[in-house]
Design a protein around this nucleic acid. Structure first.
Lengths: 120, 120
DNA sequence: CTTTCATTTGAACAACTGTTCATATGTTAT
DNA sequence: ATAACATATGAACAGTTGTTCAAATGAAAG
């Protein structure tokens, strides 16, 4: 509701008023952009990336993943929790052990995209 | 150089020894996975996502971006620095103002990929 | 040169994140 | 029951991150 002119203004804080309002109108909802950042945050840790990479090849139980990555079972379990909540991995129970696997192929695509960007 | 058998072992910490060694062999270099996580870390902040989204539409100067996002010029400048270092944006100077724009189309693809994952 | 404006930079602080350690849950076998 | 094992969870701690504030560049104009 501001009544500022589009030309000949004091230029206090904005240099290109019409560009600003045009761009602002085309922005996705605040919440969507927040969710997007939150999604990328999941991939923003090398332990989680490693876990996902491991699961590219086969479903695996927690202690095997820990073994492959040379990390504590507890640390892996904590990260699997994050991946689980983000719906990036799924799991099934077989007796005492729990097998984790990729939830869908989107994970592969997103990580592949990142890899492609790096290798250039 | 451990000489453990592949069958009939005490199962101290690993449940599936051959799977472990096979998967471990197929893993990309430690450093590569670290770099990959670092790349996603750039996208893992909603301010940076917003900046990139704004630059989808047009090149823009710092104060205009700040205006669109309703944030301090200083905050935007700090984040542009991060994006610049990651080679995700480039800039040109025109007198006093500096115009930022997307470095290449990879940014668009990666963010698009994330969006696609969210909208399902 | 001095002023003004766009931007950058550094220090400081609060908020967040990942790992560790100890402990709890849940399952199987004895 | 109890023991052994795979996994999960909570608290705590160090390390990292994003914003703010104040001050510093750097460029154009008077």
């Amino acid at each position: 509701m501001d009544t500022m002119r589009e030309t000949d203004m004091p230029t206090g804080e904005e240099l290109h008023p019409d560009l600003i309002s045009s761009v602002h109108a085309d922005m996705p909802a605040e919440e969507m952009l927040y969710d997007l950042a939150e999604l990328f945050r999941i991939f923003a840790d090398s332990t989680r990336i490693k876990i996902l990479y491991v699961l590219f090849e086969a479903e695996m139980c927690v202690c095997d993943i820990a073994q492959v990555l040379g990390m504590t079972q507890s640390a892996i379990s904590h990260q699997l929790r994050v991946l689980k909540q983000a719906k990036l991995v799924k799991f099934r129970r077989d007796g005492k052990t729990i097998y984790y696997s990729l939830a869908d192929d989107h994970v592969r695509t997103i990580i592949g995209m990142g890899m492609e960007h790096l290798c250039e």
